[in-house]
Simulated assay, not measured.
Amino acid sequence: MSGESYSKRELTAIGAFVVASVLIGVGAYQLGFNLSGGRAVGAEMVAASAPAPVSGQSLYASNCAGCHGGKGEGGGVGPALANSLTWSLEDFSNAVLNGKSPDRELSPVMPRFAVTGLDGETATDEQVKAIHDYLGTLK
């Protein structure tokens, strides 16, 4: 490109294009600012009013199904859960959290969710109840 230069007409067109682009940009900004009443416009973040409900099905799938089967039918490691359906919520909680069924100590393979937590968080009564309720739907 050495030795080549733009003609006066080309330079005028480039200058006009730059000026028009700047004016359009500034005008669009001003129009948006005026339409918003002088405040920032965009997505607003609003805190959720209540936490999402605990899903027993999801908790069961991620913490229990690997050993007890997708429908509590038992698997290679854990037994079927049909018997636990007759347990009270208190007995079920003791089994899930501490590895103690109403009549015996559960296998050491059974996690003690009071220690390990559910889904990486400290296990809550609400979560255990949700799993217990979900198992009741599998009858």
Rank of each mutant, 00 (worst) to 15 (best):
F33Y: 15
A52K: 13
G72A: 12
W87P: 08
A43F: 04
A82G: 10
G3K: 06
G74D: 06
G70K: 07
A48L: 10
S2E: 03
C67H: 07
L118V: 01
S107H: 14
E10N: 05
G56M: 12
S62T: 14
E121R: 15
V128S: 01
S49C: 00
S93F: 00
A43E: 10
N83D: 14
L59V: 01
L81F: 02
L59I: 04
L106V: 11
G120Q: 11
K71I: 07
L35E: 04
V115S: 14
I131S: 07
L138F: 03
T86S: 15
A65C: 06
F17I: 14
M1F: 10
F33L: 11
A61M: 13
E44V: 15
G56Y: 09
I131E: 09
G70I: 10
V54Y: 07
E126F: 02
K129C: 02
V54L: 05
A43K: 07
G74P: 10
A47Y: 01
V128T: 05
D133W: 06
A20E: 03
T124M: 02
E73W: 09
G66D: 05
M45N: 06
Q127G: 07
L97V: 08
E105R: 12
H68Y: 06
D91I: 05
F17L: 15
S101N: 08
D125A: 15
V96T: 11
E44N: 08
Q30P: 00
A80G: 14
G74E: 06
L118W: 13
G66S: 13
E121W: 07
G76W: 05
S107G: 04
A28C: 08
M1D: 01
V19W: 04
A80C: 02
E10I: 11
E105N: 13
V26M: 14
N83M: 12
T86R: 10
G56C: 10
L97Y: 02
A40L: 13
T86H: 02
A28T: 14
G56T: 02
G136L: 14
N98C: 00
D125S: 12
E44L: 12
Q127A: 06
G37Q: 05
L106T: 02
A130Y: 08
E126L: 01
A20C: 12
R112W: 09
G66P: 05
L81Y: 02
S58V: 09
D119I: 00
Q57T: 00
P111E: 08
G75V: 09
R104L: 07
E10W: 03
S88G: 04
V128K: 04
A43V: 10
A114L: 08
T12L: 15
K139P: 15
V26H: 04
P108V: 07
G37W: 07
G27E: 08
T12P: 00
N63M: 05
K71P: 01
S55F: 06
F92Y: 15
V115Y: 10
N34C: 03
L35Y: 11
S107K: 11
E121Y: 11
I24P: 01
L35K: 14
Q127L: 03
L89K: 12
V54K: 04
F113A: 00
V115P: 03
D91V: 05
A43G: 08
A123E: 01
P102T: 09
G78V: 08
H132M: 01
G99P: 02
G120A: 10
G15H: 06
Q30K: 13
S58T: 13
A95F: 03
V54Q: 03
G75S: 01
Y60M: 08
D133R: 09
S49N: 08
